[in-house]
Computed example of a mutant assay.
Amino acid sequence: MQSPARTALSVAFSMALSLGLALVHPAAAQAAPQHAKGAGKAAASQPAADIYYAGRPDAMLLAAEIAEHHGLPREWVESMLGQARFLPQVPRLVTPPARGFVKNWTVYRSRFVEPIRIRAGVDFWRAHREALERAERQFGVPAEIIVGIIGVETIYGRQMGNFRVMDALATLSLDFPRAHPRAQARTEYFRGELAQMLLTAYRSGIDPFSIRGSYAGAMGMGQFMPTSWDKWAVDFDGDGRIDMFNSAADAIGSVANYFVGHGWQSGLPSTFAVDMQAGGQDLAALQAPDILPSFTAAQMAARGVRVLGGESYQRPLALITLENGSSGPTQYLAGTENFYAITRYNWSAFYALSVIELGQRVHEAYRAGQQASASGNP
Rank of each mutant, 00 (worst) to 15 (best):
A39L: 02
S204H: 01
D58P: 02
S247N: 09
R92N: 12
P97W: 04
R212L: 08
Q331S: 10
A127Q: 12
L322A: 08
G310S: 08
V90N: 10
Y215V: 06
G220S: 11
I211W: 05
R119S: 07
A372I: 08
A143Q: 06
I155N: 15
M276V: 10
M166R: 02
V77Q: 04
G253T: 08
N338K: 10
S354H: 00
A368N: 09
I211A: 13
R129P: 00
N346P: 03
G222Y: 04
R6A: 04
E130Y: 06
G20H: 11
E75R: 03
G161E: 03
L358N: 03
T187R: 14
S266D: 10
P142N: 07
H35T: 05
F86Y: 15
H180P: 04
G263W: 14
M80L: 09
F139G: 01
P88V: 00
W264G: 07
A27S: 14
G151P: 05
L93G: 00
L17I: 00
M166E: 11
S110K: 07
V141T: 06
L87R: 15
L322M: 14
E193S: 02
A284S: 12
Y202G: 00
R137K: 13
K231N: 13
R117F: 00
G100N: 04
Y258I: 03
A127W: 04
R315P: 01
G157M: 12
M60G: 02
S10L: 00
I252R: 01
S210W: 08
Q299M: 06
Y258Q: 01
E153R: 03
Y52I: 10
L199C: 03
L21Y: 14
T321F: 00
A216C: 09
L333R: 15
I252D: 05
Q138W: 01
S210R: 09
Q314H: 09
A201L: 02
S79D: 15
